[in-house]
Write a protein that binds this DNA or RNA. Structure first.
Length: 271
DNA sequence: CCGGACGCCTGTCGGC
DNA sequence: TGCCGACAGGCGTCCG
């Protein structure tokens, strides 16, 4: 579910509401998410002061004095800040308790999410160490894309969703960025000009930034830490709009499976 | 190394 | 109405 704009929206909410607080501990109601929840999480967290909420790719990093909580929301995960008296509901798997009575509650129906604790540098964690550049970092350029694309035959949509190339682009924003770039999602990665990659890199940044400004995209269950939805869904040009007219030329938008994922595009505007 | 398929897990929706 | 398959915002692993 959440791509970079959604995770960044959550990060901002958590940072403003939770930074500076001290953990009382944790309650787990699940054996494992994508990986087992750390044994003894309560004792690991108790007394830790949360001094910063950061983001790397689609991971949230909750920096504490003695270590870092690494969270990933998977497809269906969300976080809420609630009062500890609110009874947990279905799929409310984890509560991280703060000393002021507030609780950071993790709900994840599909359990593709993740919570880990590390006392080492989280950037060096095996799950994070191979990640590509952040799309807003200087290293992410059209020339970088063009260089990495050389000789590759994979559909460009799968290419830009590969987190080893660049992080944060998931299925929604890949579709949107390719539409705005006029590039067909199935086009072979190595057969796209440098000029088009320059434009694509800019457009990826622009789409992600606009989505962050809108609070992310809510299709069904995404919400920020206050439970409020994002409204970028209103601005989606092609995602989920098969059968509707192309916003640029009026041709009927198509849906096809490309790179194993549902893809939406205009066969007249995108080549 | 590369590209593609699969599995993880639950909820929802469309077709019959 | 009920059932069943397909599909859903991610990602790691395995196979050819």
């Amino acid at each position: 579910m959440p791509e970079l704009p959604e995770v960044e929206t959550v990060r901002r909410g958590l940072a403003s509401r939770l930074e500076g607080k001290t953990f009382l501990g944790a309650v787990s109601r699940v054996a494992g998410l994508r990986l087992p929840v750390p044994a003894g999480l309560h004792d690991l967290l108790a007394g830790q002061r949360l001094h910063a909420v950061e983001r790397r790719a689609k991971y949230l990093l909750l920096r504490c004095d003695g270590g870092t909580l690494i969270l990933h929301l998977g497809m269906s995960g969300y976080l809420r800040v609630v009062d500890r008296d609110l009874p947990p509901g279905r799929h409310d798997h984890l509560d991280l308790l703060f000393d002021d009575g507030q609780v950071l509650r993790f709900n994840d129906a599909r359990r593709f999410g993740l919570l880990l604790w590390t006392t080492a540098d989280p950037q060096e964690h095996p799950l994070l160490v191979g990640l590509g550049p952040e799309p807003f970092a200087g290293a992410f350029t059209g020339d970088y894309l063009h260089e990495r694309a050389r000789g590759r035959t994979v559909p460009v949509k799968a290419f830009i969703m590969d987190q080893r190339l660049v992080v944060g682009v998931g299925n929604i924003y890949a579709n949107e960025a390719l539409f705005l770039s006029g590039i067909h999602p199935a086009r072979a990665t190595g057969r796209i000009s440098r000029d088009r990659y320059l434009r694509l890199a800019d457009i990826i940044r622009t789409v992600l930034a606009e989505a962050i400004a809108a609070g992310g995209t809510t299709l069904r269950d995404f919400s920020d830490s206050d439970g409020k939805p994002g409204y970028f869904a209103l601005s989606l040009r092609v995602y989920g709009r098969e059968g509707e007219p192309c916003p640029r030329c009026g041709h009927t938008l198509r849906q096809e499976r490309i790179g194993g994922r549902s893809s939406f595009f205009c066969s007249r505007c995108q080549h």
